[in-house]
Design a protein around this nucleic acid. Structure first.
Lengths: 338, 338
DNA sequence: ATGTTCTATGGTAGCGCTAACATTATACGC
DNA sequence: GCGTATAATGTTAGCGCTACCATAGAACAT
C-alpha cells in the first residue's frame, strides 16, 4: 500500500546504494564511518551521492540509532548579548564534536521553559543545557524520567539536576556592595531585574541586601527597583530613584544593560558621575568600558561557561559521572563610575 | 532480534494505548487532533499519558507523517541584538501555529551557512528563513532540489530563491548620505562592515558611494573603513579616520553598533559632536536614543521583518504561491549627532 | 427495511535509516 | 595445508510513529 507516488520522491540511501552498486548499509557506513569502507567503494559512493544530490535523512537515522547528535539549549532571551557569548562557547565545542544545537528562548518564563524542555525530550536530544537553576516541578520530573544529561548554567544550584557551571551571583552582588562601601558610599540604591522569574536576579538582589547588612547599613525598600533588562529601563529607574531621594550617593544596577542605560542618562542630564551619583553594574559588558567614566562592573567568564558546560555535557553523554558543579568565579572591574 | 533490553525503555505510544485500552492510532489522534476522539476515550488517554509521563517521540512521528513542524532559521550572529528582534517576530508567529524554530549562526560565512542548510534539509524542516540574499552555489542547488519553502530576510534580492522580506539597504545608506549632505557636510567618511561576506554591508557601502556621487562628491578610499560589528571597532575606526584626516566633518557608520562605539569615543575624548565631527548610524537601535547627542540613524521594522517572513513561509508551506518579495521600507531618525 | 452519511475506532504497512549478526574474501602463523 | 584473525560487505529486523483503508455502529432520510 504505497502512500506516496513513487515518482519524484527525494533521493534515499537505497537510491544511492543502487547507483553505487552496494547495499544501503555500506552507504550508511561511508557517511558515518568512512574508515570502514574500502577506498574504491567509498569513491563510488561519494560519486553517487554527488550525482544524485543526496542528503541523509537525519530523523530516520536518529530513530534507528537512538541518538540524535543534537543538544537542546534554553536561554532566557537572545536580545541580551551576554548569553550570546555562552552560546558561542557551547557551539564551538559541540560543533567540533559533530553535535548540533537547538536553541530556544524561555523569556524568563518557567512554563515556557517547561514546554521547551518537553519539546527537546520529544526530539530526543542527547543533552540539555539550561540557564539558571530554578525550574518548574514538571520540568524537573520530565528531565529525571528521561534520564537526559543536563547542565545548568550561570548560577550555582544547591541541588543540581545533574551538572552545573556558573558562579555565585549572590557573592558577585555582595562584592560590589562591599566595593561601593569601601569607596565611601553609604546610601546605595539598587536597580535589579524582575526577581519573580529568575534565580540569578534573585541571588543578586539577596547579595545586595546581604552586602548592605554586613556593612551595617539598612535596606530602604524605596531604594530597590525592579525592571526588565532594557537600556531605557535603567535610565528611567535611575531618574526615578534620584527624584524620589536626591541623597542617594550610589546606584548598583544588577545588569550592565541597566547600568549603561543609567550612566547614559546621567551623561545626558550632565550629572557628574560619580560626584552626583556613583554607578556600578554587573556583567562586564564591553560597552561599559567605552563610556566616560568607565563603568565599574563585575566580569565573569561568559564564554568559558559555555565551553565548560559543553565539555561536562559531552562527558555525561559519553557515560561519565554526574553531579559536577563548577564555580568559574568572577572579577571586579573598578572603572571611574564608582 | 531485539536490539535493546526490553525493560526500562522509555514509554511508547503503544504503552499508553495499552494502559488506556485503545489502539495506538487513537492515542496518536488524541494528541494531534483531539476532536476526532470521543470525550470519554480522550479522558482515559490523557490520564494514561499523565500517569506514565509519556512524551511523544517527535522524530518517529515526523518520519511517518513526512512533516516536522520545524522551521530552520539562519542568522549571522546572535550577539548583535538587531537580529534578535526579527527572531522574536518569527517565533511569535510560528509558535502560535505550532511550529518550532531551529536557529543557527552562520557567522557571516557562506560555507557555514551551506553546512547549516544541509543539516536543516537533513532534518527535513518544513521551511527555511535565511538572512541576506547571497548564498553559495551548493546552497542554492540544495534548496532548489529539496523544494523547501524559503524566505530571504533583510535585503531585497533581484532573483529571489522563493520569497523575501526586507528593505533596500542600498537606498537606506544613500538616504543617509543625502541627509548628511543636506545638513552641509561635505567630507563624509564611512565605517562599514566586512563587505566580502555580506550583501547587506555591500549594499550599504554601494549606497554610500552612490550617495556621494549623486551629491557630486568624490569618494576617497582612505575615508572608507571596514571592520567587524563591535562597539570597540567603531571607536577605533573613527579615531583612526580623524587621525588620518582631521578635515573629515562627518562619519557615516553602516551599523549602529559601530556608530555608538564611535560616538562614545568622541564623548570620551570630549570631542564635540557634531561640531568637530558629525556622526550617523544605521539600524535605529534603542541605545542610540539614550546618548547625548542622540544618534542620527535609520530605523527599519526589524520585528515586522520576522513576522512577515513567518507569514509568507506559512503561506508557502500551505501551498500558496511563491516568488513574493516584500519591501518594508525604512525611516530616517534625525538626532543631534548629525 | 434499505441505503446513506457520519462518528469513533482499529489493523496494517511502511517512513528511511542503522544495530546486530552473518557472510565472504583475504592475509597470516605455524 | 588448516585454523584463525581481519577486513569488507550484506541480510534482516526493527526504531515509534502515522497514512491509508477498513469496519462497526448510530443517526437519519427515503
Amino acid at each position: 500500500m504505497p502512500r506516496r507516488i513513487l515518482a519524484d520522491r527525494p533521493t534515499t540511501m537505497a537510491d544511492v546504494a543502487r547507483r553505487a552498486g552496494v547495499a544501503a548499509i555500506t552507504v550508511s557506513r561511508a557517511l558515518s564511518n568512512p574508515a570502514q569502507v574500502s577506498a574504491a567503494t567509498l569513491a563510488r559512493i561519494q560519486r553517487a551521492i554527488a550525482e544524485s544530490g543526496y542528503v541523509r535523512h537525519a530523523l530516520a537515522g536518529s530513530l534507528a540509532s537512538n541518538a540524535t547528535r543534537c543538544i537542546g539549549v534554553v536561554v532566557p532571551v537572545l536580545s541580551n548579548s551576554i548569553f550570546a557569548d555562552t552560546l558561542q562557547g557551547l557551539s564551538e565545542v559541540f560543533e567540533e564534536q559533530g553535535y548540533r544545537l537547538l536553541i530556544a528562548c524561555s523569556q524568563y518564563d518557567p512554563l515556557r521553559e517547561q514546554r521547551i524542555v518537553e519539546a527537546f525530550i520529544g526530539q530526543r536530544v542527547d543533552g540539555i543545557a539550561l540557564t539558571g537553576v530554578t525550574h518548574s516541578g514538571p520540568t524537573r520530573a520530565m528531565l529525571a524520567r528521561a534520564r537526559i544529561p543536563v547542565v545548568q548554567m550561570w548560577n550555582l544550584p544547591t541541588r543540581p539536576l545533574d551538572c552545573a557551571v556558573g558562579f555565585s551571583n549572590f557573592d558577585a552582588a555582595r562584592a560590589m556592595v562591599r566595593h561601593l562601601f569601601s569607596r565611601g558610599y553609604r546610601r546605595i540604591a539598587y536597580i535589579g531585574g524582575l526577581t519573580y522569574k529568575n534565580d540569578r536576579t534573585q541571588a543578586r538582589e539577596r547579595g545586595y541586601r546581604q552586602g548592605l547588612a554586613e556593612a551595617g547599613l539598612r535596606v530602604k525598600e524605596s531604594h530597590v527597583r525592579r525592571t526588565p533588562f532594557e537600556f531605557e529601563n535603567g535610565a528611567a529607574a535611575l531618574s526615578d530613584l534620584i527624584e524620589t531621594d536626591p541623597s542617594i550617593d550610589a546606584v548598583f544596577a544588577a545588569s550592565d544593560v541597566l547600568a549603561v542605560g543609567a550612566l547614559l542618562h546621567c551623561l545626558r542630564r550632565d550629572w557628574p558621575v560619580p560626584r552626583k551619583v556613583a554607578l556600578a553594574g554587573l556583567d562586564g559588558s564591553p560597552i561599559g568600558a567605552l563610556i566616560k567614566p568607565e563603568l565599574t562592573s563585575i566580569r565573569f567568564p561568559r564564554h568559558q561557561i559555555g565551553v565548560r558546560s559543553a565539555e561536562l555535557l559531552l562527558d555525561r553523554i559519553r557515560g561519565r559521572a554526574a553531579g559536577v558543579v563548577e564555580d568559574l568565579g568572577f572579577e571586579l572591574i573598578a572603572g571611574g563610575s564608582a
